[in-house]
Design a protein around this nucleic acid. Structure first.
Lengths: 128, 128
DNA sequence: AGTGTTATGTTATAATATAACAATTTTAAT
DNA sequence: ATTAAAATTGTTATATTATAACATAACACT
């Protein structure tokens, strides 16, 4: 199950795992330049792969990327996040019911569910 | 309830309403250059306002914008879309239950729901 | 070893979005 | 009505995010 990552992919993933918050591609690049990564292309290519295997998710509304904390995340392509509007903290929801609910919901519109991105904005425990 | 739009805002809105599909800001700009709109800034400022009043929504994963068909849309800031992966058709879901469901869901995490963006990918009636 | 395929490095450029400031219009107080 | 302050708009420049294109290298199969 564990994928072997290339050097660059591992460096990008480490950078994201060290951060508790999502990072933009160019922030990642800045972080890892000292390790010999020189171009955006290298970062984006690594991100593509990491996203594909479910190790990283993209948060579309922030144009940024976050490591999936969830080791057993069987949701590879769908993402669901809570984003605090005050402190900007982002946390991943791991509610497998969502897939079922969306699947049911979309049937009403004769739509065959495949994946989803969900971004919920509001205020986290500490900020409300 | 009806907002008065400025000339530029109305032109941008018309451009989106004429399109059945979402448009990027620069596509809009291209469409309306013949009407004297010259710069991205004008388009983005109009979009900001139109989004604020709920006349237009942004589809984050596509970096594009769509007119809200739903005249009585009381959901101003939240958005929910079905996106067909084959024909790229986008349609808006208008299920007010979603807000309630997300509100309940996030309570479990001690999170105070405010708004959401939901993008569901799959295959539409014609493409499945 | 030779050849086709896949991955990586590198440079350049495309696509999306905002900053900064000047010019104009609107507002609202005197 | 006059004018100062505030908000809106026009315009140029630039920042930010992402991909194209092509060269080079690594891999794998015969």
């Amino acid at each position: 199950m564990e994928k072997n990552l290339t050097n660059t992919q591992q460096i990008v993933l480490n950078s994201l795992e060290k951060s508790d918050q999502p990072l933009g591609a160019y922030s990642i690049l800045f972080n890892i330049q000292k390790k010999g990564i020189k171009s955006p292309q290298q970062v984006y290519r690594a991100l593509d792969k990491l996203i594909e295997i479910g190790a990283v998710h993209k948060i579309e509304s922030l144009n940024s990327y976050i490591a999936c904390k969830n080791k057993n995340c069987d949701i590879k392509k769908s993402t669901s996040f809570l984003i605090c509007e005050k402190c900007k903290n982002v946390s991943e929801i791991n509610d497998n019911n969502l897939t079922d609910e969306f699947s049911k919901l979309t049937k009403k519109s004769d739509f065959k569910y495949a994946t989803h991105n969900l971004e919920i904005f509001g205020f986290c425990k500490g900020c409300r």
